[in-house]
Design a protein around this nucleic acid. Structure first.
Lengths: 167, 167
DNA sequence: ATGTCTGCAAAGCTTTTGCACTGAT
DNA sequence: ATCAGTGCAAAAGCTTTGCAGACAT
């Protein structure tokens, strides 16, 4: 299962490196593998920690270089969110829909065939589409609950402090 | 025309500030006005330059603070793109579709009723949607042209250097 | 009068760069 | 044998923070 994906993405990388006369260094493959072993969004630091766990040490420069390379091969996606830069493994042409709570920042990846279908069908001006990301902003259920509680509290407090209307 | 928008967003800001017991400082309104006078995406520095042109000086700290404030009121949107952080004036609930060329980085804002409709209709898990951004990645027409030219060139060069097949 | 907001400068992060060395081609 | 790619450390950018003073309430 995972091996199939792993091989596919390794092959994509290899093709890219060969076609662009770039070197097939162990660092590049190790980073690719680790990226694909991580689940969901992760930071560069988290990626680095994971690599260290596997006793594979790379410098920051190499990490940045390689991630940019993977980015341009579209094997990873970079999101710049409220709480910093996050990466995500991503096959080419894989489309992502994210639900982002603007209050607590929680991100949930959702699967919405309706959206995917619409974006694929949409007419674009002189443009060959490859993939897309959708970010839907709003409020998650737990923040809604919190907000409601706060409002109830406030309303109560107001009743106590301002029992009379001005006249 | 613009005055109507300007007044609307000023009112939104005013309401927010009053409701949250924050101060209505001249800086906040000046920054808001300038943000809404700028077209498309802009960096913080560009915003600052524009403010300076209008002889309105603000410190970086205030710029960042105020932009974060406007961000939380959803009067501006922040994009973190390949070439850094960009801001954009945005009414609440205004939805944006972007076409991003992964080769040259050019961003075009597109209007796609199909996409807007789909995202609005999509079912979300326990989430109150507010607004959304769509980023469609691919290749713009000028990069397509360039690429085709390069390929033609390469093919020609290959014919010259490798006229024989190996046997 | 009060305490928030601002300006300035310093600190703290993140990302890039320079240079010497290593290793893929 | 080359020179792209790497590691390390320093530099450069970007964003936040601390503190003193200003000003909206």
């Amino acid at each position: 299962m995972d091996d199939i994906v792993s091989n596919k993405v390794r092959n994509i990388l290899t093709d890219y490196l060969e076609q662009n006369h770039k070197r097939k260094t162990p660092e590049r493959y190790a980073i690719l593998d680790t990226v694909y072993s991580m689940s969901g969004h992760f930071t560069l630091e988290e990626l680095n920690e994971e690599l260290e766990l596997q006793n594979f040490h790379v410098s920051k420069a190499t990490l940045y270089n390689t991630m940019n390379l993977l980015l341009s091969v579209r094997l990873v996606v970079r999101h710049n969110l409220k709480d910093g830069t996050k990466y995500e493994a991503s096959f080419r042409n894989v489309n992502h829909c994210h639900q982002i709570c603007t209050v607590c920042g929680k991100i949930t990846e959702i699967n919405s065939p309706i959206i995917v279908d619409a974006v694929c069908k949409a007419r674009l001006k002189r443009f060959i589409r490859d993939s897309f990301s959708v970010y839907i902003y709003g409020m998650c259920s737990s923040c809604q609950t919190k907000l409601n509680r706060q409002r109830a509290k406030k309303a109560k407090a107001k009743q106590k402090t301002k029992p009379k209307k001005k006249t």
